[in-house]
């Protein structure tokens, strides 16, 4: 490879005293790229290579097979319930935390972030302990014929738990940076609270909101550990896409496992592309930590 094309004029130092010799620069860039290639690009390439190892037809067959379709449907449904609920919560939490000063605010902010520090397995376990047959509410639920664990409600609860902070932690810093002056002006001029939110706040936070929803959705559709604990693994019924991947993999059905996995990888790539576009185009309307 032509090194000059690679480390050409673009890398010319602005201040000689703040840059390294060309050799050091080359070694550092090479190390970084090699590290990322081995740990990120290679696994991604394997997913698509294996998925299409049996040809496009085999790939497609693995996706339209009834159990796979059921898994795709369940994943979409769980995300369609969990994401809007976390969205409403995130907006409410951001409004009270970013717009008011009250006691216990920093504690509340810490508690909202709590689910990120809990192992996904524990996130599933807590609902089994509460709603499982031998759990705290198990006997009562059984008497009333309500099933939560090993059914859709349990899967949704576990998904909500692991994606709980996404929207809130995106909006809180953004709304804190923006300040409350415009909302205060709207209220003084006679707008109602709802009008103020819809006409003043919402246009200011929409890209941050989308950013939070995007990350929330990616995690909701891809969650494995928490959902695995509460799902019960009933094929065609309580298997989400990631769980379906696991079952196929354990049956040594590699082409089908990687075919479903490739669909999830595609979702991840689309998420990354939209996220990067938001960071480049609407940097000023995202929280400061997201600006590149």
């Amino acid at each position: 490879m032509a090194l000059d094309a690679f480390f050409g004029p673009a890398a010319a130092p602005a201040r000689p005293v703040r840059s390294e010799p060309r050799l050091v620069r080359g070694v550092l860039i090479g190390t970084a790229l090699a590290f990322l290639a081995i740990f990120l690009v290679l696994p991604l390439a394997v997913v698509f290579a294996q998925a299409f190892a049996g040809g496009v037809q085999a790939w497609l067959d693995s996706l339209v097979e009834p159990d796979a379709l059921a898994a795709i449907r369940l994943t979409l449904m769980a995300a369609a319930i969990a994401v809007p609920l976390n969205l409403v919560f995130g907006v409410a939490a951001a409004w009270c935390i970013a717009r008011f000063e009250f006691r216990g605010k920093s504690l509340l902010t810490t508690l909202i972030d709590l689910p990120f520090s809990v192992s996904p397995v524990i996130a599933g376990l807590i609902y089994v302990l509460l709603f499982g047959l031998n759990g705290w509410l198990g006997p009562w639920l059984r008497d009333h014929d309500i099933q939560i664990v090993f059914a859709l409600p349990g899967i949704v609860l576990a998904t909500i738990f692991v994606t709980f902070p996404f929207v809130a932690r995106e909006l809180i810093p953004l709304m804190q940076e923006q300040g409350a002056e415009e909302e205060e002006a709207a209220i003084m001029l006679g707008a109602s609270g709802w009008q103020t939110f819809r006409r003043v706040t919402l246009p200011k936070i929409r890209w941050g909101l989308l950013y939070g929803v995007l990350l929330c959705n990616a995690r909701a559709m891809g969650e494995f550990g928490a959902v695995s604990v509460v799902s019960g693994h009933i094929r065609g019924e309580t298997n989400t896409m990631p769980l379906h991947v696991e079952i196929l993999y354990n049956e040594y059905n590699m082409v089908a496992a990687f075919a479903v996995a490739s669909l999830l990888a595609l979702l991840a790539l689309v998420t990354l592309v939209v996220k990067s576009l938001l960071e480049w185009r609407y940097a000023g309307e995202l929280a400061a930590s997201r600006r590149h």
Partner: peptide
């Protein structure tokens, strides 16, 4: 942009990809 891949890629997909590798 690709640095954030581990945040976006479902863990089960990462798991079987790394095992395959």
């Amino acid at each position: 942009a690709i640095v954030d891949l581990p945040f976006a890629l479902p863990t089960a997909v990462a798991g079987i990809a790394l095992t395959g590798l």
